[in-house]
Structure formats: structure tokens, C-alpha cells
């Protein structure tokens, strides 16, 4: 059989390793970035400022899920899913209300007094510091598990000849949630009155206002969506790895990069941007020697394969989103999906 012969030559072991380390890992972190970036890009487009506390909002959402987990520990076992995932809709609702509350308390008064966009950014940084301070005050700085002892973390191994393709339960839930969120958001933005109003405000606020669209409603809906998606992203990330209170800085930069790469104010762009940034990170830190080694017999003698051949050492992972950001700002400031560059 010729196919079997071809398969035998292919280095399955290494390819599956590549799939595990780059494709699946990139999809996971990319989905988390995408869930965050959708909110950031909506706020960017409608309220016109960079929302720095978004990373902390994700963490806050995960902590709400943790508190719910303590309050109702038995829910998950009844359904057969992790408790935190079952309770996630409540956490999303609470975080969405929190986002609206923050807007009422801090952003709306500034907006009403008509300050410059830069001052709004500064205010958002003030809010970021307050949230970080409170989170660490109540939660300490250690890491926590969002998996209760009663939940078991299922790990699926798909045999592909040689090494197994590994995927865990929280990762599947993350993909499912992202897909559902994207489809729901698409339907909302294209079919519903409010979604259309949001797009109108994002495109041209003055025109939207004179056509009778209530800016207050649009702003409130924006915060609700952004808060809910942030909570989902934070909870699912915490389910996949651990819950850390000081996540915000490490995640806000890739999220901004994703939002800007996708084009500010473009939700689809944010999803594409999130995945792009996620894949770039995993591709950049991947050790390419693993894939080159099986090709040793076919390569000329003088090429030596180093033990480690990665574009970026793992310690410098944060450099990757930053360079994507800089590259986009230099060559295509509107982003892939033609977002807005000016105020």
C-alpha cells in the first residue's frame, strides 16, 4: 500500500508534538485573547478609549466563579460538568453588572463633562489599579484552583500513531464557549435592533444620535457584553490552568494587540486578531529543532541542527504580541479589518 508507506516516512511523532504544542495551545490561548479582545474592541469603538482594566475584569470574573463554587459546591456533580463551568453564566451576569456599575461610577461622569479621550484612558488606569489592589487584598497573591476536588479533569487522548493528541475537558469547553459566543455575537450585531444601533454608534456617533439612537442604552449594552465575555474568558482560562490574581499585565498587552491587529471597533477582527496573536506566541516559542531532526538524513552534511531553535526564548514571550502590535502600527494602522485610527 503506497499510502501506508508514505505515512511511515512521515514523522508522526514529531507532527503530533507540533499539533499539541502549537495548534492546540495556540487555539486555547488565542480563544482566551479573542474573548477578551471582543470586549476591548467594542469599548474602543463605541466609547473610544483603551480599557486597561479588562485583564482585571477577566480575573474578577474568575473570582466570582470561585466564590460561587464555594457557595454551591455540588452543582457540577449533578450535571456531570465542572462546577465552575456550570456556574459560569451567573459569574458572567455578575461581572456584566460590575462593568456597568464601574461605568456609572467612574466613566460616565467623565464622559458627561466631556473630557479628552486621554483623560478617559488615565481614569481607566486608575480603575485598573483599584481593581488590582482589591483583588489582591481579598485573594492574596497566591494561585488557586478553580477545579473543585469533586470534579475530575477529563483528559482525552486521541491516538495518531506514535504520540497521542492530548486535549483536556476545560479546553473543549473553551472552544465550545468561544464558538457559541462568536455566533451569538454575530447574530446579535447583524439581526437585532440594539446590535445594529451599536454598529451605527461605532461608525458615526453623531449621525447615530441624530437618528434617534439612545447612546446610553448602547453604552450599557456594550459594557454588559464586554463584562460577560471577559468573565467567560477569565473563568475558562482559570479552569484550564490556574487562577492568579496578578494576571492582568500579562494578558492585557496581547489583548490590545489582538484588538488593534483586528482593527479597532471590529468584533470579527478581534477574534481573528486573538487567534493570530495566540498562534504567533506558540509558533515563536516552539522549538523547531524537533521538526528538523527527522529530516536529518535528507539534509546536506554542513547544516547542523542546534538542540534548541526557537525564534523567541520562552522568557520573552511577551515580546511577541508587542512586535505584532508595532508591526501593525507601522504598516497597517487600521488593522486587518479596517478599524478606526483617529478618534
Amino acid at each position: 500500500m503506497p499510502e501506508a508507506g508514505l505515512l511511515a516516512i512521515l514523522p508522526m511523532n514529531e507532527l503530533v508534538f507540533f499539533l499539541n504544542k502549537v495548534v492546540i495551545a495556540g487555539l486555547i490561548i488565542g480563544s482566551v485573547y479573542a474573548l477578551g479582545a471582543v470586549g476591548v474592541t467594542l469599548i474602543f469603538g463605541i466609547l473610544r478609549f483603551a480599557h486597561f482594566p479588562h485583564g482585571d475584569m477577566m480575573t474578577a470574573g474568575a473570582f466570582v466563579a470561585l466564590v460561587l463554587l464555594w457557595m454551591f459546591p455540588g452543582v457540577g456533580a449533578a450535571v456531570g460538568l465542572p462546577t465552575a463551568f456550570v456556574l459560569m453564566p451567573i459569574a458572567m451576569a455578575v461581572t456584566a453588572l460590575l462593568a456597568v456599575g464601574l461605568d456609572r461610577m467612574f466613566y460616565r461622569p467623565m464622559r458627561k463633562s466631556g473630557v479628552k479621550p486621554v483623560v478617559m484612558v488615565m481614569t481607566s488606569i486608575g480603575v485598573m489599579l483599584m481593581m488590582q489592589g482589591l483583588l489582591r487584598l481579598f485573594a492574596g497573591t497566591g494561585t488557586r484552583q478553580l477545579y473543585a476536588d469533586t470534579d475530575d479533569k477529563d483528559i482525552y487522548r486521541i491516538p495518531l500513531g506514535g504520540r497521542d493528541l492530548v486535549i483536556t475537558e476545560p479546553q473543549l469547553m473553551l472552544f465550545a464557549t468561544t464558538i457559541v459566543a462568536v455566533v451569538a455575537l454575530h447574530m446579535f450585531l447583524t439581526r437585532s435592533r440594539m446590535g445594529k444601533a451599536m454598529r451605527a454608534v461605532s461608525d458615526n456617533p453623531d449621525l447615530a444620535r441624530v437618528s434617534g439612537i439612545s447612546i446610553d442604552h448602547v453604552v450599557r449594552t456594550t459594557w454588559l457584553i464586554a463584562g460577560a465575555l471577559a468573565a467567560a474568558g477569565g473563568t475558562l482560562l482559570a479552569l484550564d490552568v490556574t487562577l492568579k490574581p496578578d494576571l492582568s499585565y500579562n494578558i492585557i498587552l496581547p489583548i490590545f494587540a489582538a484588538a488593534i491587529v483586528g482593527g479597532v471597533g471590529q468584533p470579527y477582527g478581534a477574534i481573528a486578531g486573538g487567534l493570530l496573536v495566540g498562534f504567533s506566541e506558540t509558533l515563536a516559542v516552539f522549538n523547531w529543532s524537533v521538526l528538523l531532526r527527522p529530516m536529518r538524513p535528507y539534509l546536506p552534511e554542513f547544516i547542523e541542527i542546534p538542540a534548541k531553535l526557537a525564534f523567541v526564548p520562552t522568557e520573552y514571550k511577551i515580546v511577541v504580541p508587542f512586535f505584532i502590535l508595532i508591526a501593525v502600527l507601522i504598516w497597517r494602522p487600521t488593522g486587518l479589518f479596517k478599524g478606526r485610527v483617529n478618534n
Partner: peptide, 9 residues
């Protein structure tokens, strides 16, 4: 940290 943020806002 909280106080710094509060002062800024």
C-alpha cells in the same frame, strides 16, 4: 495600590 488608583480617578 488601591489608594493610588482611587486618587487618580
Amino acid at each position: 495600590v488601591f489608594v493610588i488608583g482611587l486618587t487618580i480617578t
